[in-house]
Design a protein around this nucleic acid. Structure first.
Lengths: 261, 261
DNA sequence: CGAAGTGTTGAAGCAAATCAATTTTCGTGG
DNA sequence: CCACGAAAATTGATTTGCTTCAACACTTCG
């Protein structure tokens, strides 16, 4: 894993837009970081590197010495199942950690692979642990990890209990909100560099069926597709159809918890 | 929620066995707690109370002021879906936290309800946070939360991608291991106080189908049932059938992570 | 321009849902 | 302890959402 030191004074994503550091955007959501905290965090992103589409970033069983963060692109957590099927367990968008949990648990119990070309940052564990000695940063990291867990629960409920058309609609609603939160979607449309097979591996349905469900959503005028872009003409319609409630994403600034007496 | 102060010098579970504090058993797994840490933890369990079967412990939207821990019994995380279906997102066994994440995220995005009569402990957030000022305890709590996340990922892969017979077999393998880890199963059998409906709500399959799949597993001699007890004559056979690999449960003492340089 | 990957369509088969009825188990009070 | 009612488990018949297999069209890019 080569790690060209790209000291990036201004970050640009693959579409050429100048974007804020997406990790910062994400961790600031809780709204409790001081200027000094932010400086500490920014200093962590010193070592970035590029990964082509469909490469592994970390593999099952790895004991990563650094923690990897998505700066640009699109990736997924996955497990290979008996019989060669691939189960996609999460999509990762800019700002997301690949293996924060492995720093605590010691080992990856699944792999992370890119789906589109990605820019990654590698943060040495020692540097991260030092930053986490600041309570506000530790709290923000903890929040990020627990928000990932909330997404897993929503996926489990969604994939387990809903018909395929609702499942796919729900997934699109989630991706729209998450991409919007890091400036990669306007309200109406976003780039989604996924094949129908990659969607099916997340939903647990066949490629053929993904295709038919997409046609169904188009026929209902809930979505339009244009190459690898998704257009959602009326987000509320799609969200209603999917039974989507964005609370589980914890994108709003932290609702202050009741103070412990 | 009445909170009778039951200062329990020795804990007994509902079957009358004298058991260790299951929270301690769980948090000690990482193997890094000092005697002082253990004393601090033990002191947290001062306020226990009983809850009947099929009651809610916390509800979606709650902002709990205490953190609740299972001391005895059987419970589940669940969400109610559009159409009245219930999605069971996790089973909770003694030693498991109900709402540790809500202490950080501020709010429950799902409910926790008992399935069997339970003994719960309520830990005031202030007391927990004070205990967590000890690094070893903070680390153990973090490990516990992340191990829950690993179980969610395994469920998502299992429920999403496998045939129903493998799914159910996998679930039984997991419960056997988790119950064994807190002394509630010998190698061969354990009490499983769940109806077929409650199993179906976790697997996303109908009650009728749960029944047929159970019959199939019995016919294959992979399991026997006796009232609410499950007997697994040859655990390896069932685990092979289910493609079960216990690594994701993180029940073994922490594999020491590579030291950060 | 050709080849590979991706998307689309149709037909047949199957796993699981649904509906409905019956039996068994279990908890409770007489 | 037994009788009763309710909950849970079981069985059969029918329907359906999704898979699988196979062929073909479109796009992208070297």
């Amino acid at each position: 894993m080569d790690c060209r030191m790209l000291l990036s004074p201004a970050l640009h994503n693959r579409q050429g837009y100048r974007v804020r550091n997406p990790l910062m955007t994400k961790l600031e959501r809780a709204g409790t970081l001081s200027a000094e905290d932010r400086a500490k965090l920014a200093a962590l992103i010193s070592c970035t590197y590029e990964v082509a589409a469909r490469e592994d970033i970390v593999r099952e069983g790895d004991r990563p010495r650094e923690v990897h963060v998505m700066m640009d692109g699109f990736a997924c957590r996955y497990k290979m199942m008996a019989g060669g099927r691939r189960a996609i367990l999460a999509y990762l968008v800019p700002g997301d950690f690949c293996d924060l949990h492995a720093a605590v648990l010691g080992r990856m119990d699944h792999a992370v692979g890119t789906l589109a070309p990605c820019t990654m940052a590698a943060i040495p564990r020692a540097a991260l642990e030092e930053a986490a000695s600041r309570p506000a940063i530790a709290r923000a990291l903890c929040r990020a990890a627990l928000a990932d867990e909330a997404i897993l629960r929503e996926w489990l409920a969604n994939m387990g209990q809903q018909a395929a058309d609702r499942q796919l609609a729900h997934l699109l609603c989630e991706l729209r909100r998450r991409l919007q939160a890091v400036g990669l979607a306007d309200g109406r449309s976003f780039r989604l560099p996924l094949t129908q097979e990659e969607l099916g591996d997340a939903l647990g349905i066949s490629t053929v069926h993904v295709n038919r469900v997409l046609q169904c959503l188009r026929a209902l005028r809930l979505i339009e597709t244009n190459g690898r872009s998704i257009i959602i003409p009326h987000a509320e319609l799609l969200e209603t159809f999917a039974g989507f409630d964005p609370g589980y994403l914890y994108l709003a600034p932290a609702e202050s918890a009741p103070a412990p007496q």
